[in-house]
Design a protein around this nucleic acid. Structure first.
Lengths: 131, 131
DNA sequence: GTGCATTGAATGCGCGTGCATCTACTGTTC
DNA sequence: GAACAGTAGATGCACGCGCATTCAATGCAC
């Protein structure tokens, strides 16, 4: 069945591009900004939405992270002073997460690195000089 | 710069499809066959090549795994009786890895699961009856 | 109000990973 | 043959992850 081969090929391609790029991103973000990929992605989600929803589950749902992984990621970010967790008064089970000023700054810096790696390793659209 | 947005979008798409599919694969392979994704990918690499090269570095180079991760993966597979490690007499640093019969069988079974998950979660081409 | 299922988030645990290091072997130079 | 750089693979270690569980707060039934 040739469909099987097509599927496998497609998956291999996905697997390969993801892993290559993710590895580069991981290293670049870690070395340059002391952020894991999940850290960065989380910060990134927080910049897009200014509103103060009960982020935790909200964030988790639009990310690839499990609930527990997100919980620890936010804890890490809070320890680093990049985000702030505040209890939600309406529903005291919920937790708001928001960027701090240092967090916003860190994300801004890391964004450059992030984009640079993507530009270098994502299959280019039109390129003006890939390696 | 709109290229930035395009890059980010492209990356988000990749990130999302990869993680969704990988998570499903991981669970399906683990639940159904007691294999991690890396286990499966390793077995899969071993079925394609019949020759007895010094696999370790060879395998590693065509996979997304680091040398150490592959080393442990193979150790795991050997512990489970699915592959066999033999020293290379020409160069006693090298290690041959080859499938055992149970390994071939296990891969065969797992392959069905693997394909089923891909068929269900990869953006389809044309389908003549998925799942 | 009391009891109970449900939900939001945190945490114990085991595991797979990459990095750095270590051990063993090889090939080269003298 | 001795010394040494290089290579193949294994291992110590720290860490992020998912799963299952736990704890707190909520909402519903009575």
């Amino acid at each position: 069945m040739e469909t099987d081969l097509a599927l496998t090929d497609q998956w291999r391609a996905l697997l390969s591009s993801y892993n290559v790029i993710a590895a580069h991103l991981e290293r670049a973000l870690q070395d340059g900004h002391e952020l894991t990929l999940s850290d960065y992605e989380t910060l990134d989600r927080l910049t897009s939405r200014e509103c103060d929803k009960r982020r935790m589950q909200d964030l988790a749902s639009e990310m690839y992270l499990s609930q527990s992984a997100l919980s620890r990621t936010v804890a890490r970010l809070e320890r680093a002073g990049l985000v702030q967790r505040t209890l939600c008064q309406d529903d005291r089970r919920g937790v708001f997460v928001q960027l701090t000023s240092p967090g916003r700054r860190r994300h801004d810096e890391a964004r450059m690195t992030h984009l640079a790696v993507l530009a270098e390793h994502l299959p280019a659209h039109d390129d003006t000089g890939s390696d």
